[in-house]
Simulated assay, not measured.
Amino acid sequence: MARAERRQQLVHEAVEELGSQGYACASMADVAARAGVSKAMVHNVFGSKADLAQACLEEVGPRLVATIAQAQTATDPGERALDTFTAIFSAMAEHRYAWALVKDETLPEGSAAAELAQGYRAQLHSMGTVGTRDVLEAAGLADPLDHDLLDHIWESIVEAAVAWWQEHDDHTAEQMAQRLTRLLAVVTLRG
């Protein structure tokens, strides 16, 4: 296998390993085992676990951010939320644990991987904040505490939905977005 192909294979397996186990609990040996290669091969291609994590984040972070950013075009807040849900799950179709890797707080402090993850988290948070502000404005609500609370609720919903989806890999991105939208509609119905 060519070096570039081997590198891509290792990144693919490492995203799943690092994302599912967390940086602190994953090992180069576990990545090697997933890829069917030796631990020495993984070290030869990437050097260190931090370098491997950086390569993984460079693979999944830009796609995750760009896909979600493209979904922010709808003017209707409800449609925009559905588009955002679909984008989140679609962006993770190839790497189901991309979100977990970007959100991993155990990446080594001060490393390039931790800095990349922090940058992606900041971009995702910023898009979420704009979206929740727009939802509140459409409803005629301007209380900053409402916005702060809705930001927290939104992030919690996304985190919970992503975690649930990782355990139910038979659902497509579109099915997850529809399920989440349906459930949120039920929760917000007024009697």
Rank of each mutant, 00 (worst) to 15 (best):
S38E: 03
Q54W: 05
T73N: 14
Q118G: 15
A81V: 09
A40L: 07
G47T: 03
T73E: 13
R80M: 10
D146E: 07
A69V: 05
F89M: 00
A113D: 12
H125V: 09
D83M: 12
I88W: 10
P77L: 09
P62W: 05
D146A: 09
K49E: 06
A114M: 04
T129G: 10
Q118H: 14
T75E: 14
V60K: 01
A35T: 09
Y120L: 05
L124G: 01
L57W: 00
A53M: 10
D30M: 11
K103A: 13
A117T: 02
G47W: 03
P108D: 06
A33M: 04
R63H: 11
V102K: 00
A74H: 10
P62S: 07
V37G: 04
A29P: 03
S48Y: 00
A71N: 06
L116A: 12
T73H: 12
W99T: 00
E59M: 09
T75M: 10
A139H: 07
L82I: 08
F85P: 01
D83V: 05
R121Q: 15
G128F: 08
F85E: 04
F85T: 00
Q118E: 14
L107D: 00
T106A: 10
H43S: 15
V135C: 07
R96I: 08
T75Y: 07
N44M: 09
A71I: 01
A33K: 13
A26P: 03
A32L: 01
L107W: 02
G119A: 10
Q54K: 13
Q70N: 14
L57N: 02
N44E: 13
T73A: 14
V135P: 00
S90N: 15
T86A: 15
A138W: 10
V130T: 14
M92Y: 02
D143L: 09
T106G: 05
R80L: 06
E79W: 01
P108H: 10
P108C: 11
E109L: 08
A55S: 04
T129S: 15
D104C: 07
D143E: 12
E109V: 06
M127P: 03
H125L: 12
S111G: 11
A69K: 10
G61V: 02
K103Q: 15
G78T: 13
A87P: 01
A142V: 12
S27I: 02
A35N: 05
I68N: 04
A50W: 06
D146Y: 10
H147V: 07
M41H: 09
L52I: 09
K49R: 13
G140H: 02
G131D: 09
G47C: 05
V102H: 03
V130L: 11
T73I: 11
E79Y: 03
G140N: 02
D51R: 12
Q118N: 15
D83W: 07
A26F: 01
L107P: 00
D143K: 04
A100R: 12
A66Q: 15
H125T: 13
I88M: 11
I68A: 06
V60T: 01
T129E: 12
R63T: 03
A122I: 11
A74D: 13
D51E: 15
E79F: 05
Q70L: 13
T67I: 07
M92R: 08
G119Q: 08
A74E: 05
A98S: 15
V31W: 03
L101T: 00
M28P: 07
R133E: 14
S90P: 00
A29H: 08
D143N: 14
G131C: 11
V45I: 15
E58F: 05
T73L: 13
L101I: 01
Y97R: 11
